[in-house]
Simulated scan of single mutants.
Amino acid sequence: MREATMADVVEVDLAQPVAAKPPAVQQSHAVTAASATPADLLRIAVESGADLDKLERLMALQTQWEAKEAKRAFDAAFAAFKAESVTILKGRKVTDGPLKGKSYAELHDVVNAVTPALSKYGLSSSWKLTQDTKDWMEVTCYLRHVNGHEESVSMGGPPDAGGAKNAIQARASTKTYLERYTLKAITGLSEQMDDDDGNGKAPQGNPDEVFMKYESQLLEATTADDVRRVRALAGAAFEAVKDVKGWNQFKAMADKKKAEFEGGAK
């Protein structure tokens, strides 16, 4: 069956009277070719006794039209949401490690910040664990509009076995991390002073921000080549802020992850 187009409008005689309908009813259904929607054309085709092939093509056209309208409504709602200037507050302070004393936004900080503005414009977010194996997890974040259109962003990483976490805690940590970052990604938001503020430049003068930026990229790496690329970029950034201790720690993390990828490829 070919894809329906507005050319099907020509095949329906909008001026053709429907004998079985009283004049008052006919008048309420009156449409013109310029104003007719696929639903109008489908109704008139049914009333006119159109054949099955024509009805199927008009039904396909109606589906395409509804999808475009839903996308248009989604885009308008998302633009309005972005105009809200949502601020994500860093509610959790780091108590140990190289980032001790710094703060970051936990998952609930991000959710609490974006949900009211999303709901205001008929938008909502949700997650699904789209890959769950022993050594790899992937989370997909969906952003939906009430009219039916949705978009998604996926991100994956290995279980976070750092610290004293048991196996369940390691998986929960990675899942929460991925949920937080996919929600920020699909809404186009970041925390105040987060990473490079979206300008694509390495942060300058703040070793902790450099570490956080490239630690995030390292977690998102899916191949040994990805790790090499992140390691090279991180090396220049750590050198720029003269953070030898941070670089040595990051380098050890990157080398360990690269070895894991290369070992798994054998």
Results as ranks from 00 to 15, higher is better:
Met1Arg: 15
Arg2Asn: 12
Glu3Val: 13
Thr5Met: 03
Met6Cys: 02
Met6Val: 02
Val10Leu: 13
Leu14Ser: 04
Val18Thr: 02
Ala20Thr: 09
Pro23His: 03
Ala24Val: 09
Val25Thr: 08
Gln27Val: 05
Val31Trp: 07
Leu41Met: 12
Ala45Thr: 00
Val46Thr: 11
Glu47Leu: 15
Gly49Cys: 05
Asp53Cys: 04
Lys54Asp: 01
Leu55Pro: 03
Glu56Gln: 15
Leu58Gln: 03
Leu58Arg: 05
Leu61Val: 05
Trp65Glu: 10
Ala67Gly: 06
Ala67Val: 07
Lys68Thr: 07
Ala73Lys: 10
Phe74Trp: 07
Ala76Asn: 00
Ala76Asp: 04
Glu84Asp: 10
Thr87Tyr: 05
Thr87Gly: 00
Lys90Glu: 08
Val94Ser: 07
Gly97His: 07
Pro98Leu: 13
Lys100Trp: 10
Lys102Ile: 02
Lys102Trp: 13
Ser103Asn: 12
Ala105Cys: 05
His108Glu: 14
Val114Phe: 05
Ala117Tyr: 04
Leu123Trp: 01
Thr133Lys: 12
Asp135Ser: 11
Thr140Trp: 08
Arg144Val: 00
Val153Gly: 01
Ser154Glu: 07
Met155Gln: 12
Gly156Gln: 01
Arg171Ile: 00
Ala172Leu: 10
Ser173Lys: 05
Thr174Arg: 13
Thr174Cys: 10
Tyr177Arg: 10
Thr187Cys: 15
Ser190Met: 12
Met193Thr: 09
Asp196Asn: 14
Asp196Phe: 01
Asp196Val: 05
Asn199Glu: 12
Gly200Thr: 05
Ala202Tyr: 10
Pro207Val: 08
Glu209Ser: 13
Val210Gly: 06
Val210His: 00
Lys213Arg: 08
Ser216Ala: 11
Leu218Val: 03
Asp225Thr: 07
Asp226Gln: 05
Val230Phe: 04
Ala232Asn: 15
Leu233His: 15
Leu233Ala: 15
Ala234Ile: 08
Gly235Lys: 14
Gly235Asn: 14
Gly235Asp: 08
Ala236Asn: 15
Glu239Leu: 12
Ala240Leu: 10
Lys242Gln: 15
Asp243Cys: 10
Lys257Glu: 04
Glu260Arg: 11
